[in-house]
Structures are given as C-alpha cells and as structure tokens.
C-alpha cells in the first residue's frame, strides 16, 4: 500500500511565495535592459503579464512562463494548478493559449510515478484550455518545481494591458484571495488538503471564461493576481497607467480559513516582501488591521483576473461573467484621481 505523497514537504518555500522579491528583482532587471523592436507591442517595461509580439496585420503572439514549488500535496492537483497558473497570464492579456512547453525540476527519490501524475495533471489542464503540450525540459533537483512556457495568440489591436485603465473604471475580481496562507498552513500540517479544497478548485479553474467575457464586453485593463498579492499586482497596474485606486476592503472575497490562520501567524515569507514593495503607496484606516493587510498582500497562485472596466459596463460584465459560470465577480474598487499609483483602502 503506497503511502500518500506530501509534495509540500519537499519544498523550502510554498509556491509563488518562493518568488524573488519584487524589490530585488526590479533592481536586477534594471541592470539588464532589453532590446526593443517594432514588433514588440508589449515588453517588460510596465510589468505586464505576458509579452505581445506582432507577426502580421491580424496576428500577434502572446508569451509567458511560470513555474514554482508545490503548494499542495497531491501531484495531480499540483500539475493542474501549475498549468492554470501559467495559462492565466495569457488570459490576462486577452490571448488564446495554443501551445505549452513544460518545465520540470524533480528529485528522483520522490519516485517517477509522482512525476507522471504531475505531468498528467498539467496536460489535462492545458488540453482543457484548448492548447496542447508540445514538449518540455527537465532537470534533477532537490526540490520539485513545475510549470509551463505558454504561447498564445491575439489580434494586434485587441490585447489588454494595464496602461489603458481610466479614472471612473470599476475593478472586478474573479477569484478570492488567501491561498498563500492556506498553502503555508498545509505545509505546516496545521490543515489537511481537504480543508482547502475550495481554494484548490479555484486555483485550478482556468481564467478562460473570465478572459473571453472581458474581451466580449470590452475593458480598459486587466491583470491576474499571483505572487505579488492583490495589492502588489494592483500597484503594478496603477504604475503602468499612472492612476490611483480606491479599494472597498469589505467587498474583497477572502477565504475564511485564511483569515483564521493569518490571525495565528501562518503568513508566508513572501507576504513580507510584498509589503516592502507597496508600503509607501497604500493608505487608509484598514492599513491598521495587520491581519487584513496580510491577506491583501498574500502571494497568490493562479489567482483571479482583476479587470478594470468602464463603469457604464460594469453591470454587464458582472452579468456576463455570471452567465458563463464564473463563480466570483466582486466589484472591489474603482480607479480614481489621486497621488500617482496610490491605493486608498476604505
């Protein structure tokens, strides 16, 4: 009888909580400026979710890559979440994923049947999106890591970034936050995987429908919420568009279990890095609530889309998301006039 594998016991940090800190990364990237060519419609400058590269009048490529250490114990679920996470960046730009290359780091002592399960989980999710896995690369490593380099397509005039965000836009979020905390508690053996199944199911849900609805309705901006936390990704969006935001903290969809766990100190290391990244830009009474701040800065994996929609269309967007089965579609804030890139919490 094979003992159930607990993948989280093989990584030193959980999932996107293992990203290099935004402040450190920004400093390094500053020293490595990248070439600009005319066909590069979206590059790295504004922290967009994927690159967009024009091929012809009607076609542009969308490219993104994502991989990380396990945030759940089950290999199959880990594969699923890693795939959904990698695809999400393509969806955040309004792209349609077409191919994926897998990135694998694996300790042989775990047993290759575990790797098989991870790959199956990933493959199933990639195929669910309509894309195909076309190959990949693997390395032996002390810690398991998994993800994909994804290529998608989009019309060169129709992709979505954060630059176009406008004052008056409403901000709609399509998944709850708090997964980083749950993954940390899971790793510590404080909760069981089945106690966070709603979060796991959300994490392996594709942002496909949300993206298709957003393209159908027409929006001004979008980003997906992942390793830098809700406030981190919102901050990147505001910096790119030179706008400010007002966030209704009481409307934020949060996993209840995450709130309980944050209250007793189960906060991933990544949260503190995220705090450093945005602390000079966030104000309001709610900043005094340390637990709430930990949730708003909690690194997510395969989080929802944060969509900036013209206010006149926000009801329509929410209605269409509902009709397409998107479970969460919370109006969490709006874009306002204010100090550059500032976030006011109310």
């Amino acid at each position: 009888m094979r003992e159930k594998i607990r993948l989280t016991q093989y990584s030193t940090k959980s999932g996107c909580a293992a990203k290099i800190s935004a402040t450190d990364l920004t400093a390094v990237l500053k020293e490595v400026p990248l070439a600009r060519v005319e066909q590069l419609l979206v590059g790295i400058e504004h922290g967009d979710d994927a690159a967009v590269f024009k091929i012809s009048e009607n076609l542009a490529l969308v490219q993104t890559v994502d991989f990380f250490t396990p945030i759940v114990d089950s290999p199959y679920l880990f594969g699923q979440i890693a795939a959904a996470n990698a695809l999400s960046d393509a969806y955040a730009m309004g792209g349609k994923p077409i191919t994926a290359l897998s990135l694998v780091a694996f300790p042989p002592k775990l047993g290759y049947s575990v790797l098989e399960e991870i790959l199956k989980g990933g493959r199933d999710k990639i195929e669910e999106s309509g894309a195909v896995v076309v190959g990949g690369h693997s390395l032996e490593d002390k810690e398991p890591k998994f993800g994909y380099a994804v290529t998608g397509i989009v019309h060169p005039e129709k992709y979505v970034t954060s630059k176009g965000v406008k004052i008056g836009d409403k901000l709609i979020l399509t998944k709850p936050i708090g997964l980083g905390i749950l993954a940390t508690a899971l790793k510590g053996g404080i909760i069981a995987e089945k106690e966070m199944m709603d979060a796991i199911d959300n994490a392996r849900t594709l942002n496909k429908k949300a993206s298709e609805v957003m393209m159908e309705v027409g929006v001004n901006g979008c980003t997906d919420i992942t390793g830098f936390g809700f406030l981190g990704h919102l901050h990147i969006m505001l910096k790119a568009s030179n706008k400010s935001a007002l966030i209704y903290t009481k409307k934020m969809p949060i996993y209840l279990k995450a709130l309980e766990l944050a209250q007793i100190g189960f906060v991933p290391a990544g949260t503190h890095e995220n705090k450093k990244f945005v602390k000079d830009y966030v104000e309001g009474e709610p900043t005094k609530d340390a637990v709430l701040m930990d949730i708003l800065l909690d690194p997510q994996t395969s989080g929802g889309l944060l969509i900036s929609v013209p206010s006149v269309k926000s009801d329509l967007l929410i209605q269409r998301l509902d009709e397409e089965g998107v479970k969460t579609k919370e109006l969490v804030g709006e874009i306002v006039k204010g100090k550059e890139s500032h976030i006011e919490l109310v």
Binding site: T12, K13, T184, K187, G188, G265, F266, V267, P268
Partner: peptide, 11 residues
C-alpha cells in the same frame, strides 16, 4: 527554520 515552522514549533 523557514515559514511556517517557527510558528509551529512555538505553538
């Protein structure tokens, strides 16, 4: 110790 093990040990 990396998170969350400090909290677990103290708990």
């Amino acid at each position: 110790l990396s998170c969350p093990f400090p909290v677990i040990k103290v708990k």
